[in-house]
Design a protein around this nucleic acid. Structure first.
Lengths: 328, 328
DNA sequence: TTGTATGCGTTATCAC
DNA sequence: GTGATAACGCATACAA
């Protein structure tokens, strides 16, 4: 690898002049400029970003910390992030983080050790101890953005979809289809975002005079969508279901189909997310689009503004949209 | 950020001693060790990997270059890579590359500028001009592994599944189910791996005395699985189809279902890949498992061996397995 | 067992 | 316009 020094020697100028040439702004004499240019080409010079970073005390590296990259939800967001970063000449680091308590410190340490310019956290729940460790990042002035999570009692830089409105949209749609006996399938009810989903779903139902009791809120982990489960739905006369996870919705759809339930006539299903999967389901899945890719690109832009010091810790909220297909 | 210098001053030792303490191997006097330890803790020292990299002329960063991260196929492989890298304390750097010719040089340059320890290329076709640029990496002694692609006329470090055998397995299975009129849906036939698929599929068919003509090899991009297409299948009396892409298989399954074709009785379908999607399809998809995650972890290990200098450019071939479900 | 001194490749502050 | 020279934070050859 050729270095500035070698270029300088070859071109008979000082290292400094070469550096100036590379940073474009300073004006060199036409003649020296060409000498330098020639030397650089002949020696096949490649700048060393590591050295540059040491000197300037900043890198162009941005880390995305998420539970699992082999999950459409996260990889779609990441793709949105990637596009923006590429455009601004930032590099993308991925750190998978699976809520193993002992990893927390190690991961944050890695981010600091490698002088990340910023961090985006995806899908890190508000109920972990993670956030205490995160305070460390603030101490070290490492800018970060939380995407897709609401963090209570913290003034962090946040971006997430309007979870409550997502729930409301689901109710409104099901009601507009004539459904009155609503149910919901969700994950951990302790998560703040899911509480919002539930709140929106139930709240809007009440506006329509519909009661959604606790026994109509199913926890995904506790059920398989087998004959017994479907039978339970029928007994409760459920005619509309909102599943807060695309895979879950698809799985439910399959269960209903297997048991001969007509979707949407007998039971309508509305899901979450807008990957290709929804269109491949039978029937095609009606869904609340959380705009994953867009959320990714927005969170990247948000982080970059923070890095450039033109934005502080603010909250950005995206509006969800409904995509009506055949399952409702 | 505290530095070695500050620690040294606080502990009343030399920078060198602190550095030794951190690298563990050298043996210090108990007393100094504790002095240093204390100072490090009090000052909340965090090592600077950038400086370390500049000095040692190597980083712990490994890049994965792939077309799109929001694609289950690639993200599953990447997840496999991620696990291995994490275990060996390497960081994961992601570069999305979408075959825009003008990007090639820029991307490889970025890898060199940032002193990547190694690179894994995923799904980069053998027919692009990419490989010429890649020679540059060799000049700069940057180790790399091509995963999931066969590269003709190059002695690179390669790892891929036995594409031919995958095709053979598909044929064997379909034949064992009593199917004799086989068809295949594939992508670009110019890609070497797909040629292998086709070769295996057709070749094995011939062993059974079955002719698979050119008009039974469909190019995915040229078709939607609508009434007309399904009608065509019926006319040709096709009773078994092999789709070399999981999404395509699912999409086909849906098309067949829509047209009232009984799967697998009338037409059996066998797909590729082993994501959750296959089990959510109706009927559940029989599939050739290419072991994406495993391929990822193996390619990472392969690269690490290369970085450590214990392995040269070799070819690793994975054996595919069939997962029989309901669509065949 | 510990310290001194040098350099990794770059940017930046001075001079000239 | 251009050139010395000093850092950035760390590792290491060589001394002591």
């Amino acid at each position: 690898m050729a270095t500035l020094k070698e270029i300088a020697e070859k071109a008979n100028v000082s290292i400094c002049t070469v550096s100036r040439y590379l940073s474009k702004n300073s004006n060199l004499k036409q003649a020296t400029e060409e000498k330098v240019k020639k030397a650089i080409e002949e020696l096949n010079y490649i700048p060393n970003n590591v050295a540059r970073s040491l000197k300037t005390r900043r890198t162009n590296n941005i880390a995305v910390v998420l539970p699992k990259i082999n999950n459409l939800y996260y990889s779609e967001i990441t793709s949105g992030i990637s596009e923006v970063l590429k455009k601004h000449h930032y590099n993308l680091f991925i750190v998978e983080f699976e809520h193993h308590r002992d990893e927390e410190g190690e991961i944050l340490l890695t981010l600091l050790e490698n002088m990340m310019a910023g961090v985006i956290f995806l899908g890190l729940s508000g109920d972990t101890s993670f956030h205490e460790s995160v305070a460390m990042l603030q101490q070290h002035h490492l800018p970060f953005v939380y995407a897709n999570r609401m963090i209570p009692d913290k003034e962090y830089s946040l971006i997430y979809p309007d979870y409550r409105q997502a729930g409301e949209l689901a109710t409104e749609h099901l009601v507009s289809q004539g459904k009155r006996h609503l149910a919901m399938i969700t994950q951990s009810v302790s998560r703040l975002d899911l509480q919002q989903h539930i709140g929106g779903f139930i709240g809007k139902a009440q506006e329509y005079g519909i009661e959604v009791g606790e026994h109509q809120i199913f926890r995904q982990e506790e059920h398989v969508f087998d004959q017994e489960f479907i039978h339970g739905l029928r007994q409760k006369k459920i005619d509309g279901i909102f599943a807060t996870n695309e895979m879950t919705a698809l799985s439910l759809l399959k269960g209903l189909l297997n048991q001969g339930v007509k979707v949407p006539e007998e039971i309508a299903v509305i899901g979450f997310g807008n990957s290709l999967l929804g269109t491949l389901a039978t029937p095609e899945l009606t869904t609340i689009d959380l705009q994953n890719a867009k959320l990714g690109s927005l969170s990247a832009e948000k982080l970059l503004r923070q890095i450039d010091g033109v934005e502080g810790d603010t909250i950005t909220i995206l509006k969800p949209h409904i995509i009506v297909r055949k399952s409702s």
